[in-house]
């Protein structure tokens, strides 16, 4: 019999760590969607030259600055000392993924807003367009952006990839939380972000061709995501005792049911099957599968953030 007693009972630390609440998974989810939208709209700009996008797709890049602002608001809500948030921007810490993230977020804005502005049809620009035309500096920036759409599209792809990867690396570099401590979390969150980004775009009134190509891409993305999830679990299963103990929280432990039903079954396998059936029978991809993908992407981050905090290095018994 082993009986452990500790006098420590610090709030949110003991008995199980829970310092990161609902704000963090919500931010990570929105960050993933934004990463996906930036990359997919960037690719659309590069490959769709000469083809007229549907009105909804033309305005899609605006999702990035809007959704990332909402996400950053939740991130800010999570800070215990929110009025020190500006401290992020007085320094750059090479070893801190969160510091990288703070600066990446700052780069997302100009890249996405310029691409969105260039792609917005003139009839929608209305009053803001007249403002831009009146202010010399904005006119010059607009002129530069119009002449550099290829660069801007590439920049969106790079910034989107950086955003998507960093959200995973943020968790993956924490050796103290073995469930997170995998380099695969970077690519996993990037691919999941691309998939949820595509699903988010499918909620809007895109053209039939656009719907079909996004849905086809999403099938591949889900397949890759399933593979990455499998590799991530394989890494933990064959790792040391801390990694094995961490994996146990989703293989029999308290997060097992939530992970396998919400993330794997409803969030990945069900929409993959749905998209495949739509594709096979020539049906137009619907919004039902897209909603499932979005819920699955959110559940993945929700469960990982909470379950990861519950894992730690196996408390060593007496060392002798």
């Amino acid at each position: 019999m082993n009986e452990i007693t500790s006098t420590r009972h610090n709030h949110l630390i003991d008995p199980t760590m829970h310092v990161w609440g609902w704000e963090i998974p919500l931010y990570l989810f929105l960050g993933g969607v934004v990463a996906g939208v930036m990359i997919l709209t960037g690719i659309r700009f590069l490959r769709g030259q000469g083809r007229e996008p549907s009105p909804a797709l033309a305005l899609m890049p605006w999702v990035a600055p809007i959704a990332i602002s909402v996400g950053m608001f939740f991130l800010w809500l999570d800070l215990e000392h929110p009025f020190n948030a500006w401290r992020f921007y007085l320094t750059f810490k090479l070893t801190s993924p969160m510091s990288w993230g703070a600066w990446i977020l700052l780069g997302v804005y100009p890249a996405s807003i310029l691409l969105a502005w260039v792609g917005t049809p003139e009839r929608h620009k209305a009053r803001i367009g007249r403002w831009v035309a009146r202010i010399a500096l904005l006119r010059r920036i607009e002129g530069w952006a119009k002449n550099n759409t290829v660069f801007l599209a590439r920049l969106n792809i790079v910034m989107g990839a950086a955003l998507g990867i960093y959200t995973g690396v943020l968790l993956g570099t924490m050796a103290a939380r073995p469930l997170w401590n995998s380099a695969l979390l970077g690519p996993l969150f990037l691919v999941s972000g691309l998939s949820t980004g595509a699903a988010f775009m499918l909620l809007f009134g895109l053209s039939d061709d656009e719907r079909r190509s996004l849905s086809r891409a999403d099938m591949g993305l889900i397949a890759i995501e399933l593979g990455l999830l499998g590799l991530w679990m394989m890494g933990l299963a064959t790792g040391g005792s801390a990694a094995q103990g961490a994996l146990a929280v989703i293989l029999g432990g308290p997060y097992t049911a939530a992970f396998w039903t919400l993330v794997v079954a409803l969030g990945l396998l069900a929409p993959l099957a749905g998209e495949w059936l739509e594709y096979k029978h020539g049906a137009l991809p619907g919004r039902g599968t897209a909603v499932l993908v979005l819920l699955g992407g959110f559940a993945l981050r929700w469960i990982l953030v909470f379950a990861g905090q519950a894992t730690g290095w196996v408390t060593e018994i007496a060392m002798r």
């Binding site: 709030h11 949110l12 003991d14 310092v19 215990e80 020190n84 401290r87 969160m98």
Partner: peptide
């Protein structure tokens, strides 16, 4: 504490769970 934003990354990074947020300062 004057530089701390209360992001709690240090708390999740500590293998010993030796840190907490002081609710009075948020640091």
């Amino acid at each position: 504490p004057d530089k701390c934003s209360g992001c709690k990354a240090c708390i999740t990074a500590c293998p010993y769970d030796a840190r907490h947020i002081d609710p009075r300062s948020g640091a």
